[in-house]
């Protein structure tokens, strides 16, 4: 790929890395990443992938920007309150890097459209805030054979894992079914330290770039857990479950499921 002078300057600190170089930067420029959610996690993931020069970034989210989002959702601002989050984030990302094609999709993802939506993308990032979506995305990525980088945050703790199609465990190997709604913290309990999604989203964006570059080791078969209060990172090995209802030898889940709502969307 021929870089313009602006691109040489913009990506110079990438190009001089042996693991990236001009060839790696060209891979990044060709990559297409689909991000679920333009909130706490989707903002930093999209922001850093935009800065990195990922060619196409799709964002899907149905919400509009509220004042209470601004404590952690760094792509939005007081100027964009009331605007669809995906539009707000698109403006921010395009202002950062005009090389990037940002595709804003304002809707709630569902079992009827997820496969079509992610079909043309190389990697899916889950930054959703609820269990029905988390399981829907996991199942759809398994069926569509898309690598998935999933992250979750609550209070002072976050976790990240990378799920590769047909290679290692899926999210259901880890947690077979969504928890019943009553066990999930209610809105009042569901606080989150504003910087936490920055840490977890930064880790997710790093996983995405390594997948694009084919360098390093990703969190395949491992769940990385971060505790912000204790400043600890813990990696837990996650074995593939041979009787996983989705990716096991005798799967019982063969089509997508929309779990009933009843969860707090934070």
């Amino acid at each position: 790929m021929d870089f313009t002078d602006d691109q040489l300057m913009r990506y110079s600190r990438h190009i001089i890395l042996p693991e990236v170089g001009g060839k790696g930067q060209a891979k990044i420029a060709k990559a297409k990443v689909f991000i679920i959610g333009a909130g706490g996690l989707g903002c930093p993931v999209g922001y850093y992938l935009t800065a990195a020069g990922v060619g196409t970034i799709a964002l899907i989210d149905n919400d509009t920007v509220e004042m209470s989002n601004l404590q952690r959702q760094i792509a939005h601002s007081v100027q964009t309150i009331g605007m669809p989050k995906v539009e707000s984030a698109k403006r921010t990302f395009e202002a950062l890097n005009p090389d990037v094609n940002v595709v804003a999709i304002q809707k709630r993802i569902s079992k009827d459209d997820i496969i079509d939506l992610i079909r043309d993308y190389d990697i899916v990032v889950d930054g959703s805030d609820n269990f029905p979506t988390r399981y829907l995305v996991n199942d759809a990525c398994f069926m569509a054979r898309k690598p998935l980088v999933t992250g979750a945050i609550l209070r002072f703790e976050g976790q990240v894992t990378t799920i590769l199609p047909g290679d290692g465990p899926c999210y259901r190997c880890l947690f077979e079914e969504p928890p019943p709604p009553g066990l999930v913290p209610s809105c009042q309990e569901a606080g989150v330290l504003g910087v936490l999604p920055g840490v977890i989203g930064g880790l997710q964006a790093t996983e995405v770039l390594k997948l694009i570059l084919g360098k390093g080791e990703v969190l395949k078969g491992e769940l990385l857990m971060y505790n912000a209060l204790k400043t600890t990172f813990r990696k837990v090995r996650v074995p593939k479950n041979p009787s996983c209802p989705l990716c096991g030898a005798k799967p019982t889940i063969t089509e997508l499921i929309d779990y009933n709502e009843g969860y707090c969307a934070m």
């Binding site: 870089f3 110079s12 001089i16 170089g21 001009g22």
Partner: peptide, 13 residues
């Protein structure tokens, strides 16, 4: 860093 960027891209090619 542009000196090395140019040199590295040339070597890569």
């Amino acid at each position: 860093p542009y000196t090395f960027v140019k040199a590295k891209l040339a070597i890569e090619s």
